[in-house]
Amino acid sequence: MKTSDRISSAFAAGREASQPLVVPFITAGYPTATSTVPIVTALAASGADMIEIGMPFSDPLADGPTIQHASEVALRNGMTVGKTLEAVREIRASGTDAALILMGYCNPVFAYGVDAFIKDATQVGVDGLIIADMPPDEAGEFLVSCRAVGLSLTFLVAPNAPDDRIRKVDGASTHFSYCVSVTGVTGARSAIESRTIEFLQRMRKLSTKPFVVGFGIKKPEHVMTLGPHADGVVVGSAIIDAIESVGGAGAVVVDAVNAVSTLVAPLCAAARQATMTAQRREA
């Protein structure tokens, strides 16, 4: 399938079934140097039509302690941008057709070289990019290059942004936007706040694209609460926590694979329920 068509068809399938996508996140190179391919393959097999793969960075300032830790472990395992792209190539070679989104920070991508990165990412089968510290105001040529090759570039939309800012950010995203559920870093939250839902409702009015919501979504009830208000829910820190519970950096790969599959199945089930709730509400 052509790059970023996978994104469109994932959202289209979601809309068709009136179901939000469950979008799991895993840091490349965590828990081990060779675990990324089996974990992503297993996530796809568990029903995830879109998967985020984190490119580790030494100074991940949008991330809470859980993903910071995963990044540190991944860097100790020798993970690089180049090796992350290589893992994507292997995932595609194994026949996985889920949309794959690379998520990271500016500096490692710029150090790899913007043109080389976009070319290589497209070639190995990456569908989209999210750069946490690159707001649209700074995206300039990067955005132009992504558009030129049809690579998706997603910008983060924050709940404290005024309406005109939300329109600008959403307008800059090529295929879909990413709503940050609360002001804060990844992973930080125990209960859903009502203002998150208000934010997503505001986003629905302002946005012209599909959007996912992430940061702090860990449990089936979170998916059920937020799912009706978005086109997808991103689950990140909970995946890392699940792998930590089976040994983290010392985990056997098959245990890590089982742990994430066990976590994701009920989240996908919750996503199906979320739809029903939404339909009842609309009726």
Partner: peptide, 11 residues
């Protein structure tokens, strides 16, 4: 420039 998470842009 201003290479920060979106949440900080309004601030």
């Amino acid at each position: 420039g201003r290479f920060v998470p979106e949440t900080l842009i309004p601030a």
